[in-house]
């Protein structure tokens, strides 16, 4: 009987090289950041000033929180399209509780704590629903969260128009709006909040069994199940945390706008998913980190800000951002093909 001998390692070296390059999107992102910043600075010298950079940094915090939440879901090979709608919903619910213009707890000492609780609770609630549908009814995440997005964004508009005559809820107490730009000592409150989320998420992903389970499920759910991973519970937890992060992010955005509005961040969805992909969180699951989320958010925000600075029209901004997200997605697909051999 003719038998096969070892396959000659023809492509092996080449494949490994490409895989290594692709598996470190951090370098690409940092390189792009530097090049882009220099290019914009050449055009508008004020761009590299400390004021601008710290402003960029402060402005990206709520986006980062939302992207970290999204990363949890993407690592288990899911996607949550409902985050922005969830942000709008939590914004109007919490706003209706806190507003001085006829809020449920207007002028009460409880207004701000209850408002903050509403952001977290309703965010988690929408996430929990998504997670249960995905894990237990085995619905595709795309459809579940797309439907939740429509439902929740509709509900948010209905709620706010039922609660007030105009579309948005103003008159939020200053104790709450301080979250947006207030400081504790010399440090921005939003920064402290974000750092807490970043540290907890990073620790959770890298140092706990829960984090490792996310990666295992994202790569191969059947194998995870056979290996004794509580797959469904972990999936539900990822979606719930994603919703909670959306609520937290909405809290900072609402505080900054001093307004509860159902359309709080309705155009932010692609920024959220795009940031994650740019940083190297895979659309196909099983890969991602808090650092990746941060780099993605940083690059996208700097690009956005730079083009605002130059004064380019929105449509140029949209095209450039879209092109970069598309490229990142292409790289992601290539990485999958060359590195992880998953087809």
């Amino acid at each position: 009987m003719v038998s096969d001998t070892t396959v000659p390692p023809r492509k092996q070296g080449y494949r490994v090289l490409i895989a290594r390059l692709l598996s470190e999107p951090a370098f690409t992102v940092i390189g792009l950041l530097v090049v882009y910043t220099l290019a914009v600075t050449a055009a508008v010298p004020g761009f590299l000033g400390a004021g601008t950079l710290s402003a960029i940094f402060i402005s990206l915090l709520p986006l980062l929180i939302a992207v970290i939440g999204q990363s949890f879901v993407m690592i288990v090979a899911g996607i949550d399209l409902s985050v922005t709608a969830t942000m709008g919903l939590t914004s109007v619910i919490a706003g209706s509780v806190m507003t001085a213009n006829g809020g449920y707890l207007a002028d009460s000492a409880l207004a701000v704590p209850v408002g903050i609780f509403c952001f977290l609770f309703f965010g988690a609630l929408v996430g929990l629903f998504n997670g249960l549908c995905v894990a237990f009814i085995r619905m595709p995440p795309f459809i579940v969260t797309l439907a939740t997005m429509m439902f929740v964004s509709g509900a948010a508009v209905l709620y706010s128009s039922w609660h007030t005559t105009s579309v948005s809820i103003g008159g939020l107490p200053s104790g709450f709006t301080r979250i947006g730009y207030g400081t504790i000592g010399p440090i921005a409150f939003a920064l402290i909040l974000t750092v807490l989320v970043v540290v907890a998420a990073d620790f959770g992903l890298r140092r706990t069994t829960w984090g490792r389970w996310l990666f295992a499920i994202g790569n191969n759910p059947t194998a995870a199940l056979i290996s004794g991973v509580p797959v469904r519970a972990v999936q539900v937890s990822a979606y719930t945390l994603c919703g909670t992060c959306a609520g937290l992010s909405a809290m900072i955005y609402s505080a900054r706008l001093e307004t509860g509005t159902p359309v709080l961040s309705q155009n932010l969805l692609l920024d959220i998913i795009g940031s994650a992909v740019i940083g190297g969180v895979s659309l196909f699951g099983g890969r991602g980190s808090v650092l990746a989320a941060f780099l993605g958010v940083l690059l996208l925000t700097v690009i956005d800000k730079g083009m605002q600075f130059i004064g380019l029209t929105l449509f140029v901004v949209l095209s450039v951002k879209g092109a970069i997200i598309l490229l990142a997605a292409v790289l992601d697909a290539l990485r999958l093909r060359y590195a992880e051999g998953k087809s």
């Binding site: 140092r207 706990t208 069994t209 490792r212 389970w213 295992a216 191969n220 991973v229 992880e340 998953k342």
Partner: peptide, 26 residues
Amino acid sequence: NIFGNMSVADNMMIGRYPRRWEKLPF
């Protein structure tokens, strides 16, 4: 049942990670 995205050690221990403290998932 291999997780291509994870390390050899993670694959080996996925369902029974040694913990730092018995009751906590670290």
